[in-house]
Simulated scan of single mutants.
Amino acid sequence: MNDYKNKSAAGLLSSDDKITLQQWFKTWLYEYRVNDLRPSSLEKYNGIYNNYIKNSEIGVIKLKDLSTSNLQAYYNVLMSKHKKSPNVIKTINKTIKCCLNQAVKETYILFNCSNNVILPKLASKKEVEIFTVEEQQQFIRSLDNHRHRVLFILVFATGLRLGEVTALKWHDINFEKNELSVKRTFKRVTILGKTEGNKTEIIEQPPKTEHSKRTIPIPSNVIIELKKHRKNQLAEKLKNKLIYVDNDLVFPNEIGEPTDPRNLDRSYARALKNAGISHKKFHALRHTYATRLFEADVPLKTVQELLGHSDISITANIYTHVMPKQKIAAVEKINSLFAL
């Protein structure tokens, strides 16, 4: 009783001892976070709620009764019985941690029990997929008359993400300075609650992070390709002038609307097959760009800025496959000092 009185006087008692984790999670997501999350992030968190919180073993537990052992047991079952990966478990716990941090601030609970969970070790990362120089040249040669030829070439030459290249507009390209600016991205997301059945839409949103807003030089040969592409686009615009919507997009569909990232990914897969090259994810174009930069001895910091990574360690960790060659080359530069 004395403990209860002390906590009450200090404002440390839960203001609602009946609220469950799933009730609080939904409140946290749609009352606290709905205005500061990108639509794609809101969709991701809503997916976590529907798949792992709502009516789950932990979701029905009252916040005041939720413990580290509850979470630990739930994660263990997800891994052993449902074969969820360590990365999925880490994502779930990270989201719950943010949710419970707010519950602590609101004094629904005294501490965040997710802080003490022991998470499974993440599997070692697979080596990134890249095109060899021969494959890159073979792929480009196979793209004659392909609708997305210049798009693929531009990604090879600038490392743009799929959503960034589809959202690129002509006024983002400076033909005098041979450079482009990344200012927005397209993504197909579920617009929650907007339509019956939560249908998907292609939306424009800010780049992934502040560092993703960047200016990238364009090789002069690719500038020539872009100018040719612009002429071809003008001809297409005239051909479809009655239904064409001019959004100033560099790579729209046939009537000027945003190119659906899903359709572009399918088109890319077919182009790879036609070129006789084993399948690689679209992101391999971006990885190839970075790898070619490292092979040309471009400094790590410069590559980080060109890719739009928020931290130089991200760049270093992703491209460890290039680092051994770079280290050997660096050591060879001081080799002459030891010719005694």
Rank of each mutant, 00 (worst) to 15 (best):
L306F: 11
S212C: 12
N317Y: 04
G159Q: 00
D246K: 07
L63M: 11
E201P: 00
N247T: 08
D260M: 11
Y74N: 08
T209Y: 06
K187M: 10
S181P: 03
A284K: 13
T200K: 02
I19E: 01
R161S: 01
S114I: 01
L143N: 12
K81F: 12
K327I: 14
K18H: 05
S278R: 12
A290W: 02
I61K: 09
N93E: 07
N263D: 15
S313D: 14
S124Y: 11
N116A: 07
P258R: 10
N116V: 02
D260W: 13
S310C: 03
K227A: 15
H82L: 04
K5Q: 05
T20V: 08
I173Q: 00
V298W: 00
R214Y: 07
K121T: 13
H283I: 14
I218D: 03
T259E: 15
S310T: 02
W24H: 04
T27Y: 04
V77S: 14
N335T: 05
S313Q: 14
T315Y: 02
E164S: 05
E295N: 15
A296V: 05
K273G: 13
M79A: 10
V245T: 12
Q304H: 02
I224W: 11
N101E: 09
K183R: 04
V245P: 05
S8F: 10
E201Y: 06
I255D: 09
K194I: 01
F156G: 01
L12G: 11
N35E: 08
L143Q: 15
F282W: 09
E106D: 04
V250F: 06
Y75T: 06
I312Q: 11
R214F: 03
P324S: 14
A316F: 13
V150T: 10
K213T: 07
Q102A: 05
F186G: 11
S8R: 12
K194H: 08
Q138N: 12
L122E: 11
H146V: 01
K333T: 14
I61G: 04
G59C: 10
T302S: 05
E43Q: 13
I92T: 06
S181M: 01
N317S: 04
F251W: 10
E57A: 02
A103V: 05
E196I: 13
K26S: 04
E295M: 11
E134F: 14
W170L: 02
K62Y: 12
L160C: 02
Y52N: 15
R270F: 15
E204Q: 13
I48N: 02
T166R: 00
T20L: 09
R141P: 05
P261D: 12
H146Q: 03
K183Q: 14
F139Q: 09
F294A: 07
L306I: 07
R188F: 04
